[in-house]
Design a protein around this nucleic acid. Sequence first.
DNA 1: GACATGTATTTGTCAGACAAATAATATCGG
DNA 2: CCGATATTATTTGTCTGACAAATACATGTC
Lengths: 258, 258
Amino acid sequence: MPLTESKPVQEEPIIKSSISKQIADQLRNSIINGRFKTGERLPTEDELANRYGVSRATIREALKRLAAQNLVRSRRGPAGGNFVNQPTHEELAESLSGAATLLVSLGSMDIEEIVDARRVLQGGCLKLAAQHAKPEHVQKVQAALVRQKQAGISDEAFCHADVAFHRALVDAADNSMIRFVMYTTIEALVPITNMVLSYVKDRHEIIAIHERLLSALEQKREDELEIALNQLLDYLMESFRLAQIQHAKHQKPPSGSN
Amino acid sequence: MPLTESKPVQEEPIIKSSISKQIADQLRNSIINGRFKTGERLPTEDELANRYGVSRATIREALKRLAAQNLVRSRRGPAGGNFVNQPTHEELAESLSGAATLLVSLGSMDIEEIVDARRVLQGGCLKLAAQHAKPEHVQKVQAALVRQKQAGISDEAFCHADVAFHRALVDAADNSMIRFVMYTTIEALVPITNMVLSYVKDRHEIIAIHERLLSALEQKREDELEIALNQLLDYLMESFRLAQIQHAKHQKPPSGSN
DNA sequence: GACATGTATTTGTCAGACAAATAATATCGG
DNA sequence: CCGATATTATTTGTCTGACAAATACATGTC
């Protein structure tokens, strides 16, 4: 730290972005480079404000940026402060799927693209699952399917169980990176599944295919898994088209389809 | 707006999270649900502060949370304000890969897992590419490879071209969702590629395999593509192990590699 | 020793102010 | 009338200082 701070002779590189953003980036790097370790408490806001020579408000805006990325958590009180957060897979997956649903809702991603992507990616994923799946993984898939088969559950609950089912399938591949990535594509399909469910009331077909997936996983039959997956996606696509038609009928002529 | 505001009789549900976070979530939902359309300007901070009955600082913290997610952009001046941002694919991919590098740097993702994931996912991706690749896609791959083959370029530039090469390969699949997802896994491998490059100076092998990938793509040979991909990843893994050993010996990591 | 109480610390929020950027408008010279 | 320049108004960016709320820790009372 230079002792003379009043006149930074060094030409400040003409940075256009706001100070709070710069500080956020800087803190972010410090975290990534391990200068602040996970779980550690970083200096108090006052301390940081002094250190960077800015006001606490600015520091706070920087911290909130990081908080939005689940990089820091804050607690009040004497033992409180801002802590480096080790994002759990769930949190990561959450922010990811947030991004995914955003993309979908903004219409910048085509349904067919998503389904194609899932066909390819999940296809590979299931191969891995067939190789790596441990009993507890299979069990989780089974559990999700059982929940889905409960009679009389709401569409919402069914959809929730559907997500759980597919997540469990992905988990069976036993690979963090794949999980990270696949959760996104699963989430991206949720709105469609929802739509399909609310218009095409038939859950039998979905459940039947899910059962095929489960038993193929149990028997570690890669080929069966792929076939079933394709069936499922074909069915979804088809139903989706039907749902769209019905949707168009009941609703106004689709003006804001973008 | 209710006229009587002094005493909200309605029991405010005992929410534990901070107001700024609640407001951020609320705004976020409004954006996703399309109540604020993309590109639109949302009310001024003062206006929002009044509307929510909080101070501007609180509103700003909420907005900064959204800004961190690339959901809003802000501009100063009379025609300025906070605008709903349509995140480009690049921005989205950026935030994704940010999360990915974070996961890697925090050590919650294994190198082998990443490589395995890439084997599986990119394997599927390349199949799609073989089917869908248009001339311009192939050309982009070619261009990236040419850049990589330039003699005397820095490790950094080489690595940059490497990323471009793989991105171009992914683009050849011509699918937004896959792009979105694969960019992440590509980014996740960058630190490793970096390490390999800085310790195992040999670029020939990588280039050779890249050439094989390119020609396989040109000929739309799915099998060749898969073989070459596996070679590349095998080579990376092996080199990475060597690099690790050397790293342990020298102990001093080149600090500013990132 | 157990329990209630106070106290210090730290984040959360507020209020008001000024600085900086910038689009729209007014001003002035031709 | 036109064009370049100066002014102004608006809006975000930052600062300052204050108080509220949560909470770990110490203190005191029984």
